[in-house]
Amino acid sequence: MKVVNIYKRLVTLSLVCSAVGLSGCTSLGVEPWERDLLAKKEMALTSAPIDASLDDHIYFSKEATSGGRSFGGGGCGCN
């Protein structure tokens, strides 16, 4: 349980840090003409959606966690 509590605190801490970080978002980012690398297909957050959906299906049926990146949902009676 102790380990779990430490993890929970770490997650809370990282979320607070992220929120603080995001309030300074206006200083982050690029100008439209600086998007050459970000515009690459491989730089999309989900650059291989087919792989992602196949993986989601495998891990959904083999582990107790689903979703996070997108909706966890239902979907199959897989064993």
């Binding site: 979320l15 995001l22 980012g29 998007r35 970000l38 979703g67 996070g68 990146r69 909706f71 239902g74």
Partner: peptide, 26 residues
């Protein structure tokens, strides 16, 4: 029945880096 809620923020950090943070409730 399943209800999922998903909240996310995506931030371009610089020319080379992008970050996403999501919270989901199910």
């Amino acid at each position: 029945s399943t209800i999922d809620l998903l909240f996310g923020v995506t931030q371009v950090i610089n020319r080379q880096m992008i970050v996403q943070l999501n919270y989901s409730y199910s």
